[in-house]
Design a protein around this nucleic acid. Structure first.
Lengths: 145, 145
DNA sequence: TATACTATTGCAACTTCTTGCAATAAGGAA
DNA sequence: TTCCTTATTGCAAGAAGTTGCAATAGTATA
């Protein structure tokens, strides 16, 4: 619980408030470590703060992602998941078949982002990206067909 | 209308059937040219085939995207959009502020995909990717603040 | 500590998306 | 053409995500 409070000064610096709802939401994201869907966050955080509602979860996740406290990612299908941004800067590579997931270091994309900025005129390209492919295991299985 | 029928042989080759619903859906995607949300496809295609239902639209778009007849993309917020894959192989770069959108040639990402395949062991990485940044216009505006 | 400002919440209603299942209709074979 | 197989559809119900607004409660200030 306390661990979530360390964000309080940073939130306030941006004109945001540290409410018990936000403490609960940050807490479950911290405890879980990985990424969670809004529904998962809602179910888990509700145990800590029973009066929590769904709109609050959605609005909070979106707000905190906008302010870079959280990373938002698509993991297929069109559903969003969120994770704490503090951990590190990475991207995702997910197997189309079995959903096995590995992380891509941000360094691997930095050069591309630089090139895109130069060629497009756009700036501050820092998207959190998810790639899809076939993992080694599923490559073998498909060969067997 | 006829233009959509050219897909029929390709669909059949994959065990899919060319129904009037699919003709209508492909037709609106063809007419519009760009990408459309499932709701937009539903509203437009319903004019051609009034008995069309939402589940059919969602299932069809997903199926056709899976078979590579369509490209699925996230354009922020977590909503999916679809466009005909035939046009060309490209990716998107969208302005975080004003939503202005430009296309990125696939060639710009090919090297990265190759590197990722080598380093990860994953194969057939060909994701349709959307990047976010600040367009030239919005960079100026933000400077003025 | 009390006050005032306003960010945030909960509620209720709504839109968007998904799922299971029985009925329908493409399209290959006779 | 007719029959048969089974992919596809529509329906109905439900899950997930969104929005507007009035009430609540953080937090800065006095």
């Amino acid at each position: 619980m306390t661990c979530s409070l360390k964000y309080a000064p940073q939130l306030r610096a941006q004109g945001l408030r540290m409410t018990p709802q936000r403490v609960a939401i940050l807490h479950v994201l911290h405890q879980t470590g990985g990424h969670l869907s809004p529904t998962q966050v809602y179910e888990l955080a509700r145990k800590e703060h029973p009066s929590l509602t769904e709109p609050t979860v959605y609005r909070t996740l979106e707000e905190l992602a906008e302010r870079k406290f959280l990373l938002a990612a698509h993991v297929g299908s069109g559903r969003m998941v969120y994770e704490l941004a503090e951990n590190h800067n990475h991207h995702h590579l997910i197997c189309r078949e079995c959903r096995a997931e590995i992380q891509i270091e941000h360094a691997a994309l930095e050069k591309l982002f630089g090139e895109l900025e130069t060629s497009s005129g756009y700036r501050f390209i820092d998207s959190h990206v998810t790639f899809f492919g076939l993992c080694p295991k599923c490559q073998k299985i498909n060969k067997g067909d």
